[in-house]
Nucleic acid binder design. Sequence first.
DNA 1: AATTAGTCCAACCGCGAGTTT
DNA 2: GAAACTCGCGGTTGGACTAAT
Length: 293
Amino acid sequence: MRTPSSSSSSRIKVLTPCCNKIGLKKGPWTPEEDEILTKYVSIEGEGRWRTLPKKAGLLRCGKSCRLRWMNYLRPSVKRGHITLDEEDLILRLHRLLGNRWSLIAGRIPGRTDNEIKNYWNTHLSKKLISQGIDPRTHKPLILNPNSSSDDNHIIISNNKTNSSSSPSSSSKLANNDNLNTINPNPISYNINNNNNRPEEITSSGDCQHQSCYAMLVNYDDDHMNIAVTTEGDDGMNCCTDDVFSSFLNSLINEDMFNCQNQQINGTLQDFDPFIASSTLSSNQNNPKRSMDE
DNA sequence: AATTAGTCCAACCGCGAGTTT
DNA sequence: GAAACTCGCGGTTGGACTAAT
């Protein structure tokens, strides 16, 4: 937690036990602590992290408990090396999403954002550099030295305009746990693209809900915007997670991606040739692989 | 064998945003 | 409506381990 002096906002934060590190243990977790935390969460469930340490009898802050559970103790966490398929998926997702680690992790079962982030920083970024590719932009290092770090990355916001939403808010909106409940507005996917001029097309997607969505892609000077509007049975956005999954799948999956390419007259292919080629090659052994695996 | 350099990854930190009071 | 609380994210750090000298 932030202390009042370190906060950039006008909100005044009061030190809470979670912030006050006095008496709280830091550093690596012991097997005994792991056992206590695992036992407690298995009984009480996830959440209420702030009060968990006291109730469970742990001398840790809530954030530390949550991190330990999420990244290590959770039963669904897959241990072991990242497979080639997973690596390929990470590369393509990062190409689309940038450093949205939680979002990427959400598409790779059993892997945590921290694990993927570490794997990226220690393996994949170096691998791309060795291949002459900028790991931030996925473009050749020589050809585009002045490109920003967000070039060609999808920015997801709950604003119809091209707002430059923060990574955290973007991730939260794209998280399936939150989409149905907190997003009253259409999601817009903004993809920076310095090479395309204004253009507008409409498309549709498949969703089991009625009054589902329309997808609008338009280019302004610097961005490609894909706005997904949903309206469910109750008039609220009922299936933005479905939409988001479909959209992401469409960008990853070869067939759907090619379909999108045709719909937008090849402009997306210009935007992202890497995806098209890498997907083509990577799916040769698993052509129907879905990101929802 | 000792020291240094490099790598890896679990954990910490600051911060923003949503929720509750 | 404002303040306080809580959660979760991405960036960074530091210690353990390994390789090189």
